[in-house]
């Protein structure tokens, strides 16, 4: 069936947003934390898209290999981000003494 995206089986990678912008918390888009978040979002999106593809193509070894590589990247970026910025998941929280750090960061609808 036709669509506007060419090959329907190719994983979709979102284009990077142009130009620097100011964030709600004052960080520019060029800050290291922001760049790391972009890397995490891009890699994890690729992982999620590969997951859907593999659900209906479980014997595609090339996709499986890409999945393994991407999963390792996502894990690395998430751990780095949580170490340098703020917790994203429950296992990344509770790392600060005397204070509940889970409250830190960008809760929706923060401009990210």
């Amino acid at each position: 069936m036709a669509n506007n995206c060419g090959c329907q089986n190719a994983p979709f990678v979102p284009a990077a947003r142009p130009g620097p912008r100011e964030h709600a918390d004052g960080r520019g888009e060029s800050s290291p934390g922001c760049a790391l978040m972009r890397k995490l979002m891009t890699a994890d999106f690729y992982l999620q898209d590969l997951k859907l593809y593999l659900d209906t193509h479980p014997c595609d070894e090339k996709a499986l290999c890409l999945y393994r590589k991407t999963a390792a990247l996502v894990k690395e970026y998430r751990a780095k981000f949580e170490e340098r910025e703020f917790p994203l998941t429950d296992t990344g929280a509770g790392c600060k003494e005397h204070v509940w750090d889970w409250l830190e960061g960008t809760w929706p609808p923060a401009r990210v």
Binding site: P14, R17, R21, H23, M37, R38, L40, M41, F45, Q48, F86, P87, L88, T89, G105, T106, W107, P108, P109, R111, V112
Partner: peptide
């Protein structure tokens, strides 16, 4: 996970 799937600004 405390982020959106893609940036919303």
């Amino acid at each position: 996970e405390k982020r959106t799937q893609i940036p919303v600004h």
